[in-house]
Structure formats: C-alpha cells, structure tokens
C-alpha cells in the first residue's frame, strides 16, 4: 500500500503507475501483451519467459476470460515457478480489466512484487497478458509502462490496414505465425507496408515461434525497455 501518499494536490499516480515502490526503491517494469483471441499471446509470453528468465527477475499476470487456462499453460510448461505467475479473473470483460478498471490487475502485480521482494528476489519485469479481445483493447497507462500488441498472419492480412488503437498505438506490434503465411495466403510485405503507414516510426516485429530466431527479437525489445526504465528510475531517484 502507499503509506506515504500525500494530500497536497499531487497526481493520484501513486495508486497505479508510480515508478517507485512505497519504500522508494524501483518497482518492476510492467509490459502489457494484448491482441485478438488466438494470435499467440500466451505462446509469446511463454517464449519470452524462456528467453529472459536467466537474465531478469520475471513474473506474469494472466487475464483469462473464463478459465485459468493461460496461467495453467504457463505452469504446465514450467516457464516460471508458480510463485511468479498470477491469474486475474475479468468478469466477461477482458478489456475492462486492463483499461477501464485496472484495480484487480494492479493488486495482482503488487502482490507478486511484495511476495518476491520478501523472498529477496525483487522483480525486474512483470508481463501482463490480456484476455483475447478485439482490435480496440489497449492497456491503461495506469497499469503498464509499455505495451505489445500481438496479431497473427492467419487472422487476416488486412488487420494492419484496418488499424484501431491496438495496431496503431502499441509500443510494439508483433505479427505472429509468419510460418503460416504461405498456407493462408497472407501478404507479409503488404502487412509491413500497412503497419508502417498506421504506426509511423513505432516498431513492428514479424515473428514465428516455430523456428529461429523465435521470440528473441521481441525479448531484445523488452530488454531495451527495461534498460531505459532502469536509467529513468535512476535519473528520477
């Protein structure tokens, strides 16, 4: 909890995305992963955990729509120990839990931070995976510091052209399952062109988890974010 909250007209950001823990130490970087159902968010999270877990202290919060399956998958795959995985239930509205009413997710993140701090293993990065939703579902800035939007080539190669808040504004757009492109007739160059048009200078990464380099480019992007986050936290300390 935020015991040092003052009432002198400061922004209420301490309740959500303040860069420091109540004791003044740096809190973990929070990265959201959103995107339509079946685009490969959970598989990407699992792959990111495998790539990053030896370098960074990681935790994952899943937002399942009506089960605990995403959390169960991550546990079964043993990508992280159970004490680093938490599931949030979203009451049939996954976008509400990441955008309009972020309280349950903030609580899950803080519980993970507190528990791991108590074990002497403070977190570096928390990955928050949204429940599968639609193209308008984005994370609140009160919940995450950076967000990745995951779409896939089989969901239709016109998705980048259609745009929408996820495609247009996410800090990173991942076009997943590029290995399927020849089978579903998706035009990867066209997707790249459309994404560039929608996103300007914001980055886009094409990814296939079935082969090299797998999730390594996305993992490298997360590490860049973490480096920048750490530098920012030092600068403002």
């Amino acid at each position: 909890m935020h015991l040092d909250h003052s009432h002198t007209g400061h922004h209420p950001e301490r309740h959500s995305a303040s860069a420091a823990l109540p004791d003044g130490s740096r809190r973990a970087l929070r990265v959201g992963l959103g995107g339509p159902v079946g685009s490969g968010k959970t598989a990407t999270v699992a792959a990111l955990c495998r790539e990053l877990r030896d370098r960074l202290s990681l935790a994952v919060v899943t937002n399942d729509i009506y089960t605990q399956e995403d959390a169960a998958f991550l546990l079964r795959e043993a990508v992280l120990p159970p004490e680093r995985i938490a599931a949030v239930e979203t009451g049939a509205c996954p976008h509400t839990a990441i955008r309009d009413d972020i309280s349950a997710n903030l609580e899950a993140i803080e519980d993970l931070e507190t528990a791991l701090l108590a074990k002497g293993a403070p977190l570096d990065v928390v990955l928050v995976e949204s429940g599968g939703d639609n193209l308008t579902a984005t994370f609140s800035k009160g919940l995450v510091d950076a967000q990745i939007f995951v779409i896939d080539v089989a969901g239709g190669d016109d998705i980048p052209r259609k745009g929408g808040p996820g495609v247009t504004t996410a800090d990173l757009l991942v076009v997943n399952k590029t290995d399927l492109a020849p089978y579903v007739g998706s035009d990867l160059e066209g997707m790249a062109r459309d994404a560039k048009q929608q996103r300007g200078e914001l980055p886009v990464l094409f990814q296939s988890l079935r082969g090299e380099p797998g999730a390594r480019p996305v993992a490298a992007w997360v590490r860049e974010q973490f480096t920048a986050w750490t530098a920012r936290a030092v600068a403002t300390a």
């Binding site: 979203t90 009451g91 509400t96 839990a97 009413d101 309280s103 349950a104």
Partner: peptide
Amino acid sequence: RFPAGGHAHS
C-alpha cells in the same frame, strides 16, 4: 463504472 473491481463479480 467507478473503478473498484466490481465488474468482475456477479
């Protein structure tokens, strides 16, 4: 719509 988590409970 008051953001206090109630939307996830029936």
